[in-house]
Amino acid sequence: MSDSCFVVRLNRYLDLTPTEKKAVASLEREPRDYPSGSMLWQEGDDLSELLIVHQGWALSESRLPTGKRQILRFHFSGDMIGASGIAFRDAPSSIVAATDMVVCRFPRRALGETFTEHPRLAALFFSISQMESIDLYDRLRALGRSEGKARLANLFLSIAARMRAVSGQHNPVIRIPLTQSDLGDAVGLTQVHVNRLIRQMTEEKLITRNRSTVTLVDEPKLIELARFVDRFSALDSSWFPSPRG
């Protein structure tokens, strides 16, 4: 169980019992390797399985009527992929490996069994899903009302907040193994515009970028620029049912 990145993430928010840890870790059986560029599933595919990311990065994307790509979310170690679309039989977006990955697939019905046996885990999963939804709403609001630099700042801060929720460490250096095209498709900007903004933010001593790492040099100014709210730093579990077992 110590190797379960999903257990580690959940345990940041709630002191899981040994039985709950075992139930969560059981979802991470049979890890599979996927090379960068692999299509884990396509929009419209039967959503009979969910995924837990053990290593690597994936992106959730949708194709616009113009043929352009819109990246909805990035996924990395400790994330469950597919929970946001669990209300539907068909996948609402495509999932593509942005790097080489190790992913654990499990049938959707296994989640229902886990929730039946461990209602406190159901409350925790639901709460984390809502945190991710509100974070996405924040980013969509930034896309509609913010200039490019604020959009990019919001994206960097959101990724940092999610990674810190898993690691438990407030590190200003975050690994983002994404291309500028990926970043642009996530914030509605061209690759050229993203490149120009990163240079500008570097000159203003807001960030530095070295290949696949971004350092948040002046995080308070980035937060002010993006009007960013960290949706992942705390979770209210006062209403959760008591654990079983």
Rank of each mutant, 00 (worst) to 15 (best):
C5H: 15
V7S: 03
V7C: 10
V8Y: 04
L10G: 01
L16Y: 07
T17C: 05
P18M: 07
V24A: 01
S26W: 05
D33H: 13
Y34L: 02
Y34N: 00
W41A: 01
L47D: 04
L51W: 07
V53A: 08
V53C: 04
Q55N: 10
T66E: 13
G67P: 03
Q70Y: 06
S77V: 14
M80S: 03
A87F: 03
V96N: 00
A98G: 04
D100K: 08
M101D: 02
P107H: 07
G112H: 03
R120W: 10
Q130T: 13
Q130S: 11
I134T: 14
K149Y: 10
K149S: 13
A150P: 14
L152Y: 05
A161E: 12
R164D: 01
V166G: 09
V166T: 13
Q169I: 14
R175K: 08
L178Y: 02
G184H: 03
L189M: 15
H193L: 07
L197K: 05
I198R: 01
R199E: 13
E204F: 00
K205G: 02
I207Y: 11
N210P: 00
L216I: 05
I223D: 04
D230K: 04
F232P: 03
S233R: 15
S233E: 15
S238K: 12
P243F: 14
P243N: 10
